[in-house]
Amino acid sequence: MKPLLEVKNVTVRFGGVLALDDVSLEVRPGEFLSMIGPNGAGKTTLMRVVTGTVKPVSARIRLDGRDITMLPTHQRARLGLALTHQIVRPFRSMTLLDNVTLAAGHHRIGRVIRALTAVDRSAEREQARKYLELVGIAEAAEKSVLGRPLGVVKRLEVARALALEPKVLLLDEPLAGLNTAEAARLADTVAEINRGGLTVVMIEHNLGEVLRVSRRLAVLDNGRKIADGDPGAVMRDPAVRAAYLGKEYQDAAA
C-alpha cells in the first residue's frame, strides 16, 4: 500500500545543535502510529517539520503522493494535515464552539470574498457541535475557553483538529496532564476515530495507553530513529530499553 505520509531524510539544526539527524518515516493510510522517546529526542520537532512550522536543513515530505516540502503551513493545513499541541493553544478570545467552527469552515477560508460575506455559518456550527460531542465536551460549547479545566481544553484541541477533516491527524502528547480515567477515555476516542479510517500519528509518554491503542511504534532518541515497527517487538529491543525506559517500562509491562 502506498504511504499516505512520507517523511524522508529530515535534518534539523538549531544553532549549533543537531536536533534531528536524517530521520525518515512512513505512515500508511489508516495506521495508528505512536512516537515515543526520551525528552528532547526530537519528536515534537519532527512533527513541526511536517506541518511546516520548523524549517529543516534538509527534508522531503510527501502527503498523499504530493510533495509539500516547500509549501507554507496554511497550505499544508488545507491539504489535510492537522496538529494538536503538547501545551494546548486554543484561541483564547473565543468560545469552544467558535474554536471548532473556525476549523470546520476550512474549505471557505481560502477565498477572501466568500469569507467576508459568509455569514450563514449554521452548517459549520452544526458540524462543530458534532465534533465537540465526539470528544465529549458539547455541554461547554458556548462557554469561553478561559477557565476551562485542562481535560476539557485538551479534548477541544482534538475536536478542533478533527474539524479540519484532515487526512492525517498529528497529536502531540494529547494525554499529558490528564488523570488516568480522562487519559483512557481520550485514548479510546482517538482509537475509535482511527478505526473509522483516520490516519493518526501520536507522540506520547504515557506508555500504558500507547501500548493499548497503537498498532505501530517508532522510537526517537537524540535526534535519530532507533526503532520502528510492532509495539511488542520494539519494546523488547535492547537499544530502546537502554535509551530511556528503566522503571516506566517495568511498570507498563506489568
Binding site: T73, H74, A77, L83, F91, H106, I109
Partner: peptide
C-alpha cells in the same frame, strides 16, 4: 463572518491560525 473569525484567531495566535489554514 468567516474573515472575522479568522482575524480574531490570527490576533490570538498567528501560528495556530496558520495551522488551521488561515494565511
Amino acid at each position: 463572518t468567516r474573515i472575522g473569525i479568522a482575524w480574531r484567531a490570527t490576533v490570538d495566535d498567528p501560528e495556530i491560525a496558520e495551522s488551521f489554514g488561515i494565511d
